[in-house]
Design a protein around this nucleic acid. Structure first.
Lengths: 86, 86
DNA sequence: ATGCATTTGTCCGTATGTATG
DNA sequence: TCATACATACGGACAAATGCA
């Protein structure tokens, strides 16, 4: 990323962060249809196991997906994939 | 550090840099077996306290040890002593 | 209604990574 | 080199919400 003022800038959203890698991977899975709209994602604990990461890191990834508008999280139930319409 | 007016105060190649002194000391401790292979080093904060230096300086020393292949650092966990085999 | 399991929410402590002054 | 602040990451513990038997 380059600033308009000419100064080189560090991209803090680089994909070399664990939570970002996980978020990208899940996002790709959603795009690929491996997680259909309306379907529930595996639990945070299951995802943590799957990715070999801490649950807090998975939560950070899910938060990223939420901010991208890809999923919706319901307390006590889970995180659900949103369709293109919503 | 290089003086902007009176020339360099320290020999940039010499071992009289604080981080290098610390690195050498830890390396000697590893060689002497005071830190066994597989063992975790004290945290950067603890080492900083021990050596009376800033954490950033200790980090520089640990980086030196990493570049010498003496230790391996794991994000969020610590820095571990490597055996002769690895 | 009473537990019980599952899942997300929150917090704590510790440790490393990055950035700035 | 130091000092500070914040982000990222791990691991654990407990609380709150949900659903089911």
């Amino acid at each position: 990323m380059t600033g308009q003022d000419g100064g080189p800038r560090y991209d803090p959203r680089g994909a070399d962060l664990v939570y970002m890698l996980i978020a990208d991977d899940i996002a790709a899975a959603i795009t690929a249809g491996r997680y259909a709209a309306g379907q529930r994602l595996p639990s945070e604990a299951a995802l943590a196991e799957e990715y070999g990461a801490a649950r807090m890191t998975v939560r950070r990834a899910v938060r990223e997906l939420r901010e991208r508008g890809l999923v919706r999280t319901v307390y006590g139930k889970g995180t659900y994939v949103l369709g293109p319409g919503q």
